[in-house]
Design a protein around this nucleic acid. Structure first.
Lengths: 233, 233
DNA sequence: CAGTGGTCTAGACCACCGG
DNA sequence: CGGTGGTCTAGACCACTGC
Protein backbone atom coordinates (compact mmCIF):
# COMPACT_ATOMS: atom_id res chain seq x y z
CA UNK A 1 0.00 0.00 0.00
CA UNK A 2 2.31 2.68 -1.23
CA UNK A 3 1.14 6.26 -1.37
CA UNK A 4 3.47 7.35 -4.12
CA UNK A 5 1.32 9.96 -5.86
CA UNK A 6 -0.43 12.93 -4.37
CA UNK A 7 -3.92 13.00 -3.04
CA UNK A 8 -6.57 13.01 -5.61
CA UNK A 9 -9.75 11.14 -5.75
CA UNK A 10 -8.66 9.17 -8.84
CA UNK A 11 -5.33 8.29 -7.29
CA UNK A 12 -7.07 6.72 -4.35
CA UNK A 13 -9.43 4.87 -6.64
CA UNK A 14 -6.59 3.50 -8.70
CA UNK A 15 -4.82 2.32 -5.57
CA UNK A 16 -7.91 0.53 -4.38
CA UNK A 17 -8.39 -1.05 -7.79
CA UNK A 18 -4.85 -2.30 -7.59
CA UNK A 19 -5.42 -3.87 -4.20
CA UNK A 20 -8.42 -5.69 -5.59
CA UNK A 21 -6.74 -6.73 -8.81
CA UNK A 22 -3.71 -8.08 -6.98
CA UNK A 23 -5.98 -9.84 -4.52
CA UNK A 24 -4.47 -8.04 -1.57
CA UNK A 25 -8.13 -7.58 -0.73
CA UNK A 26 -9.99 -10.69 -1.81
CA UNK A 27 -13.59 -10.90 -2.99
CA UNK A 28 -15.94 -10.85 -0.03
CA UNK A 29 -13.34 -9.42 2.31
CA UNK A 30 -13.75 -6.35 4.43
CA UNK A 31 -11.44 -3.48 3.57
CA UNK A 32 -10.26 -0.79 6.01
CA UNK A 33 -12.83 1.86 6.78
CA UNK A 34 -12.72 5.32 5.33
CA UNK A 35 -11.00 7.00 8.23
CA UNK A 36 -8.13 4.52 8.15
CA UNK A 37 -7.72 4.78 4.42
CA UNK A 38 -7.76 8.54 4.64
CA UNK A 39 -4.93 8.45 7.14
CA UNK A 40 -3.09 5.90 5.05
CA UNK A 41 -3.37 7.92 1.86
CA UNK A 42 -2.81 11.19 3.64
CA UNK A 43 -6.00 12.78 2.44
CA UNK A 44 -9.39 13.80 3.77
CA UNK A 45 -12.06 11.23 4.41
CA UNK A 46 -14.32 12.93 1.86
CA UNK A 47 -11.77 12.13 -0.82
CA UNK A 48 -11.70 8.48 0.12
CA UNK A 49 -15.47 8.51 0.22
CA UNK A 50 -15.68 9.86 -3.27
CA UNK A 51 -13.28 7.21 -4.55
CA UNK A 52 -15.06 4.34 -2.86
CA UNK A 53 -18.49 5.50 -3.89
CA UNK A 54 -17.37 5.44 -7.47
CA UNK A 55 -16.16 1.89 -7.12
CA UNK A 56 -19.35 0.87 -5.40
CA UNK A 57 -21.33 2.38 -8.27
CA UNK A 58 -19.22 0.41 -10.67
CA UNK A 59 -20.07 -2.72 -8.76
CA UNK A 60 -16.57 -3.45 -7.50
CA UNK A 61 -17.34 -2.76 -3.86
CA UNK A 62 -20.31 -3.30 -1.63
CA UNK A 63 -20.84 -0.84 1.15
CA UNK A 64 -23.18 -0.83 4.10
CA UNK A 65 -23.27 1.42 7.09
CA UNK A 66 -21.78 -0.10 10.14
CA UNK A 67 -21.03 -3.28 8.21
CA UNK A 68 -18.23 -1.60 6.32
CA UNK A 69 -16.96 -1.98 2.79
CA UNK A 70 -16.35 -5.33 1.11
CA UNK A 71 -14.89 -6.36 -2.20
CA UNK A 72 -17.83 -7.50 -4.31
CA UNK A 73 -18.10 -11.22 -4.94
CA UNK A 74 -19.40 -10.63 -8.44
CA UNK A 75 -17.77 -7.56 -9.91
CA UNK A 76 -18.38 -5.86 -13.22
CA UNK A 77 -22.00 -6.85 -13.34
CA UNK A 78 -22.98 -3.60 -14.91
CA UNK A 79 -22.50 -2.20 -18.33
CA UNK A 80 -23.55 1.19 -19.44
CA UNK A 81 -24.85 1.67 -22.93
CA UNK A 82 -24.93 5.02 -24.44
CA UNK A 83 -27.95 4.73 -26.63
CA UNK A 84 -26.80 5.87 -30.03
CA UNK A 85 -28.21 8.96 -31.57
CA UNK A 86 -28.46 7.45 -34.98
CA UNK A 87 -27.30 10.52 -36.81
CA UNK A 88 -24.25 10.88 -34.62
CA UNK A 89 -23.39 7.23 -34.87
CA UNK A 90 -23.52 7.27 -38.64
CA UNK A 91 -21.79 10.59 -39.11
CA UNK A 92 -19.23 9.59 -36.51
CA UNK A 93 -18.22 6.75 -38.77
CA UNK A 94 -17.75 9.21 -41.57
CA UNK A 95 -20.85 8.25 -43.49
CA UNK A 96 -23.62 10.38 -44.85
CA UNK A 97 -26.74 10.20 -42.74
CA UNK A 98 -30.21 10.39 -44.18
CA UNK A 99 -33.70 9.36 -43.25
CA UNK A 100 -36.94 8.78 -45.09
CA UNK A 101 -40.44 8.65 -43.69
CA UNK A 102 -42.06 5.57 -45.15
CA UNK A 103 -45.36 5.75 -43.37
CA UNK A 104 -47.28 8.30 -41.36
CA UNK A 105 -50.83 7.73 -40.25
CA UNK A 106 -53.16 7.83 -37.33
CA UNK A 107 -54.05 4.29 -36.50
CA UNK A 108 -54.85 1.90 -33.71
CA UNK A 109 -51.73 0.22 -32.39
CA UNK A 110 -51.55 -3.50 -31.70
CA UNK A 111 -52.62 -4.57 -28.22
CA UNK A 112 -49.13 -4.89 -26.79
CA UNK A 113 -48.28 -1.33 -27.78
CA UNK A 114 -51.56 -0.09 -26.32
CA UNK A 115 -50.66 -1.76 -23.07
CA UNK A 116 -47.17 -0.33 -23.04
CA UNK A 117 -48.50 3.17 -23.61
CA UNK A 118 -51.29 2.77 -21.08
CA UNK A 119 -53.95 3.55 -23.65
CA UNK A 120 -57.55 2.47 -23.98
CA UNK A 121 -58.48 -0.09 -26.58
CA UNK A 122 -59.22 1.11 -30.10
CA UNK A 123 -57.46 4.42 -29.53
CA UNK A 124 -55.84 5.88 -32.63
CA UNK A 125 -52.45 7.49 -32.30
CA UNK A 126 -49.65 8.60 -34.57
CA UNK A 127 -47.80 5.80 -36.31
CA UNK A 128 -44.52 6.44 -38.07
CA UNK A 129 -42.14 4.26 -39.97
CA UNK A 130 -38.76 5.64 -40.84
CA UNK A 131 -35.71 4.28 -42.55
CA UNK A 132 -32.34 5.65 -41.58
CA UNK A 133 -29.52 5.23 -44.04
CA UNK A 134 -25.75 5.50 -44.03
CA UNK A 135 -24.33 6.52 -47.40
CA UNK A 136 -27.68 5.49 -48.79
CA UNK A 137 -27.53 1.97 -47.41
CA UNK A 138 -30.27 0.93 -44.99
CA UNK A 139 -29.00 1.21 -41.46
CA UNK A 140 -31.93 0.93 -39.15
CA UNK A 141 -35.66 0.65 -39.65
CA UNK A 142 -37.73 2.44 -37.03
CA UNK A 143 -41.36 1.82 -36.21
CA UNK A 144 -42.73 4.36 -33.78
CA UNK A 145 -46.00 5.05 -32.04
CA UNK A 146 -46.39 8.48 -30.54
CA UNK A 147 -48.99 9.12 -27.89
CA UNK A 148 -50.41 12.14 -29.66
CA UNK A 149 -52.61 12.96 -26.70
CA UNK A 150 -49.56 13.62 -24.58
CA UNK A 151 -47.73 15.27 -27.47
CA UNK A 152 -50.39 17.02 -29.56
CA UNK A 153 -48.03 19.08 -31.68
CA UNK A 154 -46.51 15.89 -33.03
CA UNK A 155 -49.41 15.88 -35.48
CA UNK A 156 -48.11 19.00 -37.21
CA UNK A 157 -44.42 18.28 -36.95
CA UNK A 158 -42.32 18.18 -40.07
CA UNK A 159 -40.42 14.96 -39.71
CA UNK A 160 -38.74 15.27 -43.07
CA UNK A 161 -36.29 17.94 -42.04
CA UNK A 162 -35.80 16.71 -38.48
CA UNK A 163 -36.07 12.98 -37.90
CA UNK A 164 -38.81 11.80 -35.52
CA UNK A 165 -36.21 10.82 -33.01
CA UNK A 166 -34.51 14.19 -33.04
CA UNK A 167 -37.78 16.06 -33.08
CA UNK A 168 -39.06 14.23 -30.01
CA UNK A 169 -35.84 14.55 -28.13
CA UNK A 170 -35.88 18.27 -28.68
CA UNK A 171 -39.56 18.84 -28.12
CA UNK A 172 -40.45 16.54 -25.27
CA UNK A 173 -38.27 16.43 -22.19
CA UNK A 174 -38.83 12.82 -21.26
CA UNK A 175 -37.02 11.64 -18.24
CA UNK A 176 -37.37 7.90 -18.03
CA UNK A 177 -37.27 4.99 -20.38
CA UNK A 178 -37.43 1.27 -20.79
CA UNK A 179 -35.19 -0.64 -23.11
CA UNK A 180 -35.26 -4.19 -24.34
CA UNK A 181 -32.95 -6.03 -26.71
CA UNK A 182 -33.80 -9.20 -28.51
CA UNK A 183 -33.21 -11.18 -31.64
CA UNK A 184 -35.77 -10.82 -34.39
CA UNK A 185 -36.35 -12.54 -37.69
CA UNK A 186 -37.03 -10.13 -40.52
CA UNK A 187 -40.43 -10.41 -42.15
CA UNK A 188 -40.62 -10.07 -45.90
CA UNK A 189 -41.76 -6.49 -45.42
CA UNK A 190 -38.85 -5.72 -43.11
CA UNK A 191 -36.46 -7.38 -45.51
CA UNK A 192 -37.70 -5.26 -48.37
CA UNK A 193 -37.12 -2.08 -46.39
CA UNK A 194 -33.75 -3.08 -45.02
CA UNK A 195 -32.57 -4.69 -48.22
CA UNK A 196 -31.87 -8.02 -46.57
CA UNK A 197 -33.29 -11.51 -46.82
CA UNK A 198 -36.53 -12.52 -45.17
CA UNK A 199 -35.89 -14.39 -41.90
CA UNK A 200 -32.50 -12.74 -41.50
CA UNK A 201 -31.61 -12.46 -37.84
CA UNK A 202 -31.65 -8.84 -36.73
CA UNK A 203 -30.95 -7.04 -33.51
CA UNK A 204 -34.12 -5.42 -32.24
CA UNK A 205 -34.19 -2.65 -29.70
CA UNK A 206 -37.46 -1.59 -28.15
CA UNK A 207 -37.86 1.51 -26.12
CA UNK A 208 -40.65 3.25 -24.29
CA UNK A 209 -40.14 6.70 -22.90
CA UNK A 210 -42.18 8.65 -20.43
CA UNK A 211 -42.35 12.12 -18.98
CA UNK A 212 -43.56 11.95 -15.43
CA UNK A 213 -46.60 9.68 -15.65
CA UNK A 214 -47.28 10.27 -19.33
CA UNK A 215 -46.22 7.58 -21.73
CA UNK A 216 -44.77 9.40 -24.68
CA UNK A 217 -43.66 6.95 -27.28
CA UNK A 218 -42.87 3.37 -28.14
CA UNK A 219 -40.15 2.70 -30.67
CA UNK A 220 -38.92 -0.47 -32.23
CA UNK A 221 -35.59 -0.36 -34.04
CA UNK A 222 -34.52 -3.09 -36.42
CA UNK A 223 -30.84 -2.84 -37.20
CA UNK A 224 -29.34 -4.02 -40.43
CA UNK A 225 -27.87 -7.53 -40.44
CA UNK A 226 -24.41 -7.61 -38.94
CA UNK A 227 -24.97 -4.61 -36.70
CA UNK A 228 -23.42 -4.83 -33.26
CA UNK A 229 -24.26 -2.68 -30.34
CA UNK A 230 -21.07 -2.25 -28.46
CA UNK A 231 -20.05 -1.05 -25.05
CA UNK A 232 -17.10 -0.97 -22.76
CA UNK A 233 -17.05 -1.04 -18.98
CA UNK B 1 -37.86 28.06 -8.25
CA UNK B 2 -39.20 27.35 -4.80
CA UNK B 3 -36.90 26.15 -2.08
CA UNK B 4 -39.55 24.37 -0.06
CA UNK B 5 -37.53 21.50 1.37
CA UNK B 6 -34.30 21.63 3.23
CA UNK B 7 -30.87 21.23 1.83
CA UNK B 8 -29.98 17.88 0.61
CA UNK B 9 -28.25 16.86 -2.49
CA UNK B 10 -31.29 14.91 -3.75
CA UNK B 11 -33.62 17.81 -3.06
CA UNK B 12 -31.53 20.04 -5.26
CA UNK B 13 -31.40 17.41 -7.96
CA UNK B 14 -35.16 16.98 -7.94
CA UNK B 15 -35.65 20.73 -8.20
CA UNK B 16 -33.35 20.91 -11.19
CA UNK B 17 -35.11 17.96 -12.80
CA UNK B 18 -38.39 19.80 -12.34
CA UNK B 19 -37.03 22.91 -14.00
CA UNK B 20 -35.98 20.82 -16.97
CA UNK B 21 -39.17 18.82 -17.16
CA UNK B 22 -41.32 21.95 -17.02
CA UNK B 23 -39.12 23.61 -19.59
CA UNK B 24 -38.28 26.49 -17.31
CA UNK B 25 -34.81 25.71 -18.53
CA UNK B 26 -35.03 24.60 -22.14
CA UNK B 27 -32.75 22.16 -23.94
CA UNK B 28 -29.53 23.86 -24.96
CA UNK B 29 -30.00 26.70 -22.51
CA UNK B 30 -27.50 27.82 -19.96
CA UNK B 31 -28.56 27.41 -16.36
CA UNK B 32 -27.34 29.52 -13.43
CA UNK B 33 -23.90 28.66 -12.20
CA UNK B 34 -23.24 26.71 -9.06
CA UNK B 35 -22.64 29.66 -6.78
CA UNK B 36 -25.97 31.23 -7.72
CA UNK B 37 -27.86 28.01 -7.29
CA UNK B 38 -26.23 27.44 -3.95
CA UNK B 39 -27.40 30.82 -2.76
CA UNK B 40 -30.84 30.20 -4.21
CA UNK B 41 -31.23 26.83 -2.54
CA UNK B 42 -29.57 27.97 0.62
CA UNK B 43 -26.92 25.31 0.64
CA UNK B 44 -23.21 24.94 0.02
CA UNK B 45 -21.82 24.95 -3.47
CA UNK B 46 -20.47 21.44 -2.96
CA UNK B 47 -24.02 20.22 -2.52
CA UNK B 48 -25.13 21.81 -5.76
CA UNK B 49 -22.06 20.40 -7.44
CA UNK B 50 -22.92 16.91 -6.30
CA UNK B 51 -26.46 17.26 -7.60
CA UNK B 52 -25.44 18.65 -10.97
CA UNK B 53 -22.69 16.11 -11.46
CA UNK B 54 -25.21 13.37 -11.01
CA UNK B 55 -27.45 14.87 -13.64
CA UNK B 56 -24.52 15.34 -15.98
CA UNK B 57 -23.62 11.68 -15.52
CA UNK B 58 -27.17 10.77 -16.34
CA UNK B 59 -26.86 12.79 -19.51
CA UNK B 60 -29.41 15.45 -18.61
CA UNK B 61 -26.90 18.26 -18.32
CA UNK B 62 -23.73 19.18 -20.12
CA UNK B 63 -21.10 20.97 -18.18
CA UNK B 64 -17.89 22.62 -19.21
CA UNK B 65 -15.56 24.80 -17.26
CA UNK B 66 -15.93 28.44 -17.96
CA UNK B 67 -18.71 27.68 -20.46
CA UNK B 68 -21.15 26.78 -17.71
CA UNK B 69 -23.90 24.20 -17.48
CA UNK B 70 -26.48 23.61 -20.18
CA UNK B 71 -29.54 21.43 -20.45
CA UNK B 72 -28.59 18.60 -22.78
CA UNK B 73 -30.13 18.65 -26.23
CA UNK B 74 -30.31 14.88 -26.25
CA UNK B 75 -31.13 13.55 -22.81
CA UNK B 76 -31.52 9.98 -21.63
CA UNK B 77 -28.83 8.74 -23.91
CA UNK B 78 -27.59 6.21 -21.43
CA UNK B 79 -28.99 3.00 -20.12
CA UNK B 80 -27.38 0.81 -17.60
CA UNK B 81 -27.58 -2.93 -17.92
CA UNK B 82 -26.92 -5.12 -15.03
CA UNK B 83 -25.38 -8.08 -16.72
CA UNK B 84 -27.33 -11.04 -15.49
CA UNK B 85 -25.71 -13.67 -13.42
CA UNK B 86 -27.54 -16.44 -15.15
CA UNK B 87 -28.22 -18.42 -12.03
CA UNK B 88 -29.68 -15.43 -10.25
CA UNK B 89 -31.79 -14.46 -13.22
CA UNK B 90 -33.29 -17.91 -13.51
CA UNK B 91 -33.77 -18.53 -9.83
CA UNK B 92 -35.13 -15.01 -9.44
CA UNK B 93 -37.95 -15.99 -11.77
CA UNK B 94 -38.68 -18.94 -9.53
CA UNK B 95 -37.26 -21.56 -11.84
CA UNK B 96 -34.78 -24.30 -11.19
CA UNK B 97 -31.35 -23.48 -12.52
CA UNK B 98 -29.01 -26.06 -13.90
CA UNK B 99 -26.07 -26.23 -16.24
CA UNK B 100 -24.34 -28.91 -18.25
CA UNK B 101 -20.88 -28.87 -19.73
CA UNK B 102 -21.23 -30.04 -23.31
CA UNK B 103 -17.66 -29.66 -24.39
CA UNK B 104 -14.31 -29.14 -22.75
CA UNK B 105 -11.06 -29.29 -24.66
CA UNK B 106 -7.88 -27.52 -25.36
CA UNK B 107 -8.02 -26.23 -28.88
CA UNK B 108 -7.02 -23.43 -31.17
CA UNK B 109 -9.65 -20.71 -31.30
CA UNK B 110 -10.81 -19.17 -34.54
CA UNK B 111 -8.82 -16.14 -35.72
CA UNK B 112 -11.26 -13.53 -34.44
CA UNK B 113 -11.13 -14.95 -30.93
CA UNK B 114 -7.34 -15.11 -31.08
CA UNK B 115 -7.29 -11.45 -31.96
CA UNK B 116 -9.70 -10.51 -29.21
CA UNK B 117 -7.62 -12.35 -26.64
CA UNK B 118 -4.32 -10.96 -28.00
CA UNK B 119 -2.94 -14.43 -28.58
CA UNK B 120 -0.44 -15.76 -31.08
CA UNK B 121 -1.64 -17.84 -33.96
CA UNK B 122 -2.11 -21.55 -33.43
CA UNK B 123 -2.15 -21.20 -29.68
CA UNK B 124 -4.31 -23.75 -27.89
CA UNK B 125 -6.45 -22.63 -25.01
CA UNK B 126 -9.37 -23.93 -23.00
CA UNK B 127 -12.61 -24.18 -24.89
CA UNK B 128 -15.88 -24.74 -23.05
CA UNK B 129 -19.44 -25.11 -24.16
CA UNK B 130 -22.14 -24.98 -21.55
CA UNK B 131 -25.89 -25.12 -21.63
CA UNK B 132 -27.81 -23.35 -18.91
CA UNK B 133 -31.35 -24.47 -18.28
CA UNK B 134 -34.39 -23.16 -16.44
CA UNK B 135 -36.65 -25.93 -15.16
CA UNK B 136 -34.82 -28.17 -17.58
CA UNK B 137 -35.57 -26.02 -20.63
CA UNK B 138 -32.65 -24.57 -22.55
CA UNK B 139 -32.10 -21.00 -21.52
CA UNK B 140 -28.78 -19.90 -22.84
CA UNK B 141 -25.97 -21.62 -24.69
CA UNK B 142 -22.52 -20.43 -23.76
CA UNK B 143 -19.37 -20.83 -25.79
CA UNK B 144 -16.32 -19.74 -23.89
CA UNK B 145 -12.61 -19.49 -24.50
CA UNK B 146 -10.42 -19.09 -21.46
CA UNK B 147 -6.90 -17.78 -21.78
CA UNK B 148 -5.41 -20.60 -19.76
CA UNK B 149 -2.04 -18.90 -19.72
CA UNK B 150 -3.44 -16.06 -17.70
CA UNK B 151 -5.63 -18.39 -15.67
CA UNK B 152 -3.67 -21.64 -15.35
CA UNK B 153 -5.80 -23.20 -12.64
CA UNK B 154 -8.78 -23.14 -14.98
CA UNK B 155 -7.38 -26.37 -16.37
CA UNK B 156 -8.08 -28.22 -13.14
CA UNK B 157 -11.32 -26.48 -12.23
CA UNK B 158 -14.42 -28.53 -11.65
CA UNK B 159 -16.99 -26.76 -13.75
CA UNK B 160 -19.69 -29.28 -13.00
CA UNK B 161 -20.37 -28.09 -9.49
CA UNK B 162 -19.73 -24.41 -10.16
CA UNK B 163 -20.55 -23.09 -13.60
CA UNK B 164 -17.69 -21.65 -15.65
CA UNK B 165 -19.16 -18.22 -15.25
CA UNK B 166 -19.39 -18.42 -11.48
CA UNK B 167 -16.01 -20.07 -11.17
CA UNK B 168 -14.30 -17.33 -13.14
CA UNK B 169 -16.08 -14.55 -11.36
CA UNK B 170 -14.96 -15.96 -8.06
CA UNK B 171 -11.44 -16.88 -9.07
CA UNK B 172 -10.32 -14.08 -11.33
CA UNK B 173 -10.80 -10.47 -10.32
CA UNK B 174 -11.27 -9.00 -13.75
CA UNK B 175 -11.92 -5.33 -13.84
CA UNK B 176 -12.85 -4.40 -17.36
CA UNK B 177 -14.92 -5.81 -20.11
CA UNK B 178 -16.30 -5.35 -23.56
CA UNK B 179 -19.85 -6.20 -24.50
CA UNK B 180 -21.57 -6.50 -27.82
CA UNK B 181 -25.14 -7.37 -28.67
CA UNK B 182 -26.32 -8.54 -32.01
CA UNK B 183 -28.85 -10.69 -33.79
CA UNK B 184 -27.74 -14.17 -34.72
CA UNK B 185 -29.27 -16.96 -36.76
CA UNK B 186 -29.03 -20.33 -35.07
CA UNK B 187 -26.99 -22.95 -36.88
CA UNK B 188 -28.30 -26.49 -36.91
CA UNK B 189 -25.88 -27.33 -34.11
CA UNK B 190 -27.05 -24.38 -32.04
CA UNK B 191 -30.66 -25.30 -32.70
CA UNK B 192 -30.09 -28.82 -31.50
CA UNK B 193 -28.61 -27.60 -28.25
CA UNK B 194 -31.19 -24.90 -27.64
CA UNK B 195 -34.11 -26.99 -28.81
CA UNK B 196 -35.16 -24.47 -31.41
CA UNK B 197 -35.31 -24.36 -35.19
CA UNK B 198 -32.26 -23.79 -37.37
CA UNK B 199 -32.09 -20.17 -38.54
CA UNK B 200 -34.16 -18.99 -35.58
CA UNK B 201 -33.24 -15.42 -34.69
CA UNK B 202 -31.45 -15.29 -31.37
CA UNK B 203 -30.04 -12.56 -29.22
CA UNK B 204 -26.29 -12.93 -29.01
CA UNK B 205 -24.18 -11.33 -26.35
CA UNK B 206 -20.41 -11.35 -26.66
CA UNK B 207 -18.12 -10.39 -23.89
CA UNK B 208 -14.41 -10.15 -23.36
CA UNK B 209 -13.02 -9.54 -19.93
CA UNK B 210 -9.59 -8.49 -18.85
CA UNK B 211 -7.61 -8.06 -15.69
CA UNK B 212 -5.16 -5.23 -16.10
CA UNK B 213 -3.50 -6.00 -19.41
CA UNK B 214 -4.29 -9.70 -19.43
CA UNK B 215 -7.15 -10.85 -21.59
CA UNK B 216 -8.97 -13.42 -19.52
CA UNK B 217 -11.86 -14.80 -21.47
CA UNK B 218 -14.13 -14.46 -24.44
CA UNK B 219 -17.73 -15.59 -24.09
CA UNK B 220 -20.55 -15.82 -26.55
CA UNK B 221 -24.02 -16.30 -25.17
CA UNK B 222 -26.90 -17.42 -27.36
CA UNK B 223 -30.20 -16.86 -25.64
CA UNK B 224 -33.24 -18.97 -26.31
CA UNK B 225 -35.71 -17.60 -28.85
CA UNK B 226 -37.99 -14.99 -27.35
CA UNK B 227 -35.50 -13.88 -24.73
CA UNK B 228 -35.42 -10.17 -24.02
CA UNK B 229 -32.71 -8.34 -22.23
CA UNK B 230 -34.42 -5.61 -20.34
CA UNK B 231 -33.41 -2.44 -18.58
CA UNK B 232 -34.87 0.66 -17.10
CA UNK B 233 -33.33 4.10 -16.91
C1' DC C 1 -7.25 36.92 -18.51
C1' DA C 2 -11.09 35.81 -15.75
C1' DG C 3 -15.16 33.01 -15.00
C1' DT C 4 -16.66 28.49 -14.42
C1' DG C 5 -16.66 23.83 -12.85
C1' DG C 6 -13.60 20.26 -10.31
C1' DT C 7 -11.67 19.00 -6.28
C1' DC C 8 -9.62 18.98 -1.53
C1' DT C 9 -9.98 19.90 3.41
C1' DA C 10 -11.25 19.68 8.30
C1' DG C 11 -14.78 19.29 10.92
C1' DA C 12 -19.39 18.16 11.97
C1' DC C 13 -23.81 15.81 12.36
C1' DC C 14 -26.79 12.24 11.05
C1' DA C 15 -28.92 7.62 9.51
C1' DC C 16 -28.53 3.26 9.57
C1' DC C 17 -27.98 -1.17 11.30
C1' DG C 18 -24.93 -5.06 13.22
C1' DG C 19 -23.61 -7.00 17.43
C1' DC D 1 -25.45 1.09 21.65
C1' DG D 2 -21.74 2.48 18.94
C1' DG D 3 -19.26 2.04 14.58
C1' DT D 4 -19.66 2.91 9.84
C1' DG D 5 -20.83 5.20 5.71
C1' DG D 6 -23.60 9.38 3.89
C1' DT D 7 -23.81 14.00 3.64
C1' DC D 8 -23.33 19.05 4.53
C1' DT D 9 -20.45 23.14 5.20
C1' DA D 10 -17.34 27.06 4.43
C1' DG D 11 -13.50 28.07 2.50
C1' DA D 12 -9.78 27.38 -0.54
C1' DC D 13 -7.05 26.43 -4.63
C1' DC D 14 -6.73 24.58 -9.14
C1' DA D 15 -7.66 23.40 -14.22
C1' DC D 16 -9.66 24.37 -17.92
C1' DT D 17 -11.25 27.17 -21.68
C1' DG D 18 -14.09 30.92 -23.85
C1' DC D 19 -13.52 35.52 -24.62
Amino acid sequence: MTESERKTWLTVQEEVRRCIRQRIWKPGELIPHEADLAREFGCARATVNRALQGLADAGLLERRRKAGTRVALTPARKAEFSIPIIREEIEGKGHRFDHRILHRHMSAPPPDVLTLLHLANGRKILHLQTLYTADGRPYVFETRWINSTAVPNALDADFDTLSPNEWLVREVPFDRGDFAFSGYAATTADAKVLGCQPADALLMMERTTQRGEDMITYVRLLFHPGYRMHTRS
